[in-house]
Simulated assay, not measured.
Amino acid sequence: MEDKRDSPVRQFLTTVTHTSAPFITTFVLIHLSAPILANVGGSSLASSTMLLGREYYQTPFAEKALVLGPITAHIVSATLKRLLSSKPSTEPRRWRSPLSVTGYAVALLYLPVHYLTHRVHPAQEAAPILAVGPSELDFEFVKHGLQTWPVRSWLIYGGLTILTVFHMSFGAGIIWSRWMKPLLPTVSIGSAKTRNRLVFGGLALPALTGLYFMSKEPVLTFSSTLTRYTASYLTSSVYRL
């Protein structure tokens, strides 16, 4: 629970942080559903699911309003809340708390690399990338990355997936305590340990096993498209190392 002596500004920032979280959670669940379904249908089903999910989060309006906006609001409000803390009684959770470590690792390290690799770099119109379009940017692109740069790809996908779902788990407990528990005092969402087990076993692990099964499939696309995939990956310094 937040300290009742919090300033109005910090209370507002807390509200922004908490109300932006459901939008991000919805996006994450939709995003992870594709690799999870690869466990039963391979990359074909995963790509179809991903393309369907893009109808929700990748239109010109929806991406800004439902994905990028909430993510930005979440990060900025949480950071400002910490920077504005001056009294021990209103001091937020330590920077080294699980919630903070997972959140800032995702926000500062994994998310920028993932977004640049899968959204910004493939959209470059100059040769040799030639703007890999949404219909071409499916799990064949992901498979090519996993097979060509296996160590760094697995570190990025694995780290992003695991840290994100654990951050969701830690945050769920805080949001529940602040907003829902006063309304439903007899309802429990379990301990942090229980929630961590559930999100790992129900989200992170099946998403990663789905990626593993897809990484064992052949990449089914034209050689010219593979050349563009490679050029897109190599635009990132992470893949040029």
Rank of each mutant, 00 (worst) to 15 (best):
K64L: 09
E125W: 09
P70H: 09
Y157G: 04
A78T: 11
E125Y: 03
K181R: 15
E91V: 03
G190K: 03
L234M: 06
E63C: 10
A62W: 07
V165K: 01
L111C: 06
G159I: 09
W179E: 02
P122I: 03
F61M: 12
F139N: 00
R10V: 02
M1V: 14
T194W: 12
S100E: 05
K87S: 07
E2F: 13
T161K: 01
P150W: 04
V40R: 07
A46K: 08
L208V: 08
V199Y: 14
I162F: 07
K64S: 15
P60D: 04
H118G: 14
Y115E: 15
V76T: 10
V142A: 07
N39G: 06
P218G: 02
L13M: 11
S177M: 05
Y157H: 15
Y239I: 01
R5F: 15
W176T: 07
L208S: 02
T161V: 02
L68P: 00
I129Y: 01
S86A: 13
S89F: 08
L211F: 10
A21K: 02
T79Q: 06
G171H: 05
M180L: 14
R197Q: 06
L208P: 08
P88G: 08
L80P: 02
V165H: 10
L155Q: 00
M214K: 00
R82K: 14
A62D: 12
R197K: 09
V76R: 06
A127Q: 07
P206L: 05
G53K: 08
L205W: 08
F27H: 13
I129N: 00
V16Y: 09
S135R: 06
L220S: 11
H144W: 11
R228V: 05
E125K: 13
E140S: 13
R96W: 15
A127W: 02
V101I: 14
Q147A: 04
E63H: 06
S47L: 08
S44T: 08
M168V: 12
T17A: 12
P98W: 08
I175E: 10
M214C: 03
V199F: 12
R195W: 10
T59M: 03
N196Q: 15
S48I: 02
V113W: 15
E136Y: 02
A78G: 14
